[in-house]
């Protein structure tokens, strides 16, 4: 589904990614771990199409299609979803209407009619229950005044609404207390299927107790320096990142 080949990227003349290779198939959960500054968030931003990052070499393919020339919204229309580490506050736009706009623009791009209002309400109700989100919450301005946990829960709610093919969860566990973590992980697990794939980006192993990865990759200095099964996450938790740094 997702194929990253020899990806190099820089931001403001600073090289961050230095040759990433990664293949993610449908039905798989991948975890990307690594110390601060290793390029984890850059990788997710580049996949989502953030124009502040410049790809200097290599490419990202979704279902065989090179994403290089696609705007962020076009990538979203093809089924890429990024759960932000720091979701942006948008005063004046309610959660509900933001979702309505996002869903209908995606449908429009895919040649579908707008979702009827009653169906939209039904889906919103279902998905907000899945994430244990209060209805009142949905009429508030997007992310404005939300706690860290509320923001993250809202990200996964959006993921549930948009049903992406490929979801990238960038540090979704940061700022979550244990209850919120459970709710978020439970939501993600329910959305997981044979047809979609999830890439979990995290510094700590904690989230991986709940969202169990099939593969774990270690990112260091802009490269994947080690890959393995879920046991690699425990090893990292135990030993820290110093031995990775020492080896490289």
């Amino acid at each position: 589904m997702l194929e990253i080949k020899n990806l190099h990227a820089k931001v403001e003349d600073k090289d961050i990614l230095r040759g990433i290779n990664l293949t993610v198939n449908a039905g798989e959960v991948h975890a990307i771990m690594g110390p601060n500054g290793s390029g984890k968030s850059t990788l997710s931003a580049v996949i989502a199409g953030n124009e502040n990052y410049e790809v200097t070499e290599g490419a990202v393919y979704l279902d065989g299609e090179d994403l290089a020339d696609l705007a962020p919204e076009e990538r979203a229309h093809k089924g890429i979803f990024l759960s932000f580490q720091y979701p942006v506050e948008i005063p004046g736009v309610s959660v509900t209407n933001f979702m309505k706009t996002a869903i209908n623009e995606t449908r429009k791009a895919n040649g579908l009619a707008e979702m009827p209002a009653n169906e939209m309400l039904k889906v919103i109700r279902e998905k907000s229950e899945l994430l244990e989100i209060d209805r009142k919450f949905l009429s508030r301005s997007l992310n404005e005044g939300f706690s860290g946990g509320e923001k993250k829960r809202n990200e996964i709610f959006q993921m549930a609404m948009l049903e992406p093919k490929l979801a990238i969860l960038d540090e979704t566990d940061s700022g979550l207390d244990i209850d919120a973590l459970r709710i978020v992980a439970n939501g993600v697990n329910k959305l997981k299927s044979e047809n979609n794939a999830i890439v979990v980006i995290t510094h700590y192993q904690r989230l991986l107790d709940y969202i169990v990865p099939d593969f774990v990759h270690v990112l260091y200095n802009g490269k994947i320096v080690k890959s393995g099964g879920k046991e690699l996450a425990y090893e990292l938790e135990e030993k820290g990142y110093d031995w990775i740094k020492a080896e490289n």
Partner: peptide, 15 residues
């Protein structure tokens, strides 16, 4: 806000 623009675009809302 650039960040807000990217956030919205990443949800499928055109520029």
């Amino acid at each position: 806000d650039d960040k807000a623009m990217f956030y919205m675009q990443s949800r499928g809302i055109p520029k």
